[in-house]
Design a protein around this nucleic acid. Structure first.
Lengths: 219, 219
DNA sequence: TAGATTGTTAATCGATTAACAATC
DNA sequence: TAGATTGTTAATCGATTAACAATC
């Protein structure tokens, strides 16, 4: 295991993805370089933290000018695995699934949906954003014929565990779970849960905290 | 500021929301109590961590039996502010917005969407899951007439900053942002970003890390 | 050059984990 | 009672921050 392949802390990964997204805007404005001070100001981090983060992605800055935008883009993409073309499938073409299929992941993250799968016949055999939606029964055959890096779960909670299992059985190693379930996986797949509810919890708790600082009466 | 109103670390908040969701399933199976050991096993945490988390929410367990399900439900809900009825509005009724409006937030999180707002006329003046969708121009009047705790942003990135601003101008103190933008807010609003891309970054990075542990050749 | 910014090394902070007496 | 589990107190671990010489 060499440089850049160590297990990076999740908070650093999240911040790096923020820097990366900022770069798009900066580049449009023809900016060549940006300092850790400036990045920190925009994102409300500390400059030293920005430098430490970028260092982990293998970046080297220049005294006085900071970091080159194109180098940052390149280094973060490489660090995240976004430089390699990554093929994904999605299960569950409801509103959320459709939203995900319509998002331009490829441009910024190198993620390409090559197919989607649905349990309901009425929603199968259509195209969403030019991505074919098949009936779920066609999945094993499809998986044999195409290399799939990531499987996205956008089905209701009840179906999620079953979907995760057929994904793993058919060789998918990365699962991005948008359903509200704790998945139990046997084998060496990586699961990432995009739990809206965790995010909501942080928001409502912060509101509780701020409320009680003003109105003195508490429990 | 008293017990339970201190600023809780975000990781603890996220785990607490996980415990809370687990309880629903346990209660259906008529379980009365659960130990930190069992919770830890299910969620792949450490028992001591579970106890520390629950302690922060003000819970007291019993030696030998663990924590009562109903007490946990109650304590976590109170801690998160989910016991109070919380009124929300949503901006942007695309696929993602519709998905959010259709989710039963109220049952588990006490969150109730009282209206949604749209900039496109064609998608206004309809009902989604019984929630009225108004044209965005009606928002200021609406906000004067109804108390709103949380504003959800589900519009495309370009429009997000403007939406955040009219929310804050009209008295909303909590913003749940699903758009891919870094919002700049003046004043004392709380913003929580539900950034899918951060989650994707963690997943793809973990895949990069696991890949290179097998195949020895690296950069 | 002067001055802003970097990378390095050390210090601090906070969160997680360990150990164990107390409890039912 | 015996034994599982709690809550407390202390130790460890890791991430963030500070200080500052090196650099362009």
């Amino acid at each position: 295991m060499r440089n850049g392949k160590i297990k990076a802390p999740a908070p650093v990964i999240r911040r790096l993805s923020n820097y990366h997204h900022l770069l798009l805007g900066l580049r449009q404005r023809q900016v060549q370089s940006v300092s850790s001070t400036t990045l920190a100001e925009i994102l409300e981090y500390k400059p030293i933290q920005v430098r430490k983060d970028l260092q982990l992605a293998g970046l080297v800055g220049r005294p006085r000018t900071g970091f080159r935008i194109d180098e940052m883009e390149e280094a973060i993409s490489r660090f995240m695995g976004w430089s390699l073309d990554c093929q994904a499938v999605l299960f569950g073409v409801g509103n959320l699934g459709s939203a995900l299929l319509n998002y331009p992941w490829r441009e910024e993250y190198g993620l390409r949906f090559i197919a989607a799968f649905e349990s309901e016949e009425e929603r199968s055999n259509i195209l969403i954003n030019n991505i074919p939606v098949h009936h779920i029964s066609h999945f094993p055959t499809f998986a044999e014929e195409h290399p799939i890096d990531i499987g996205v779960i956008a089905v209701p909670a009840e179906g999620a565990q079953a979907v995760a299992e057929i994904m793993v059985e058919n060789g998918i190693r990365g699962i991005w779970n948008f359903s509200h379930t704790h998945l139990k996986i046997t084998g060496n797949a990586t699961i990432e849960n995009a739990l809206f509810t965790q995010s909501l919890a942080v928001l409502t708790r912060r509101l509780v905290e701020s409320r009680t600082q003003n109105s003195g009466t508490s429990i």
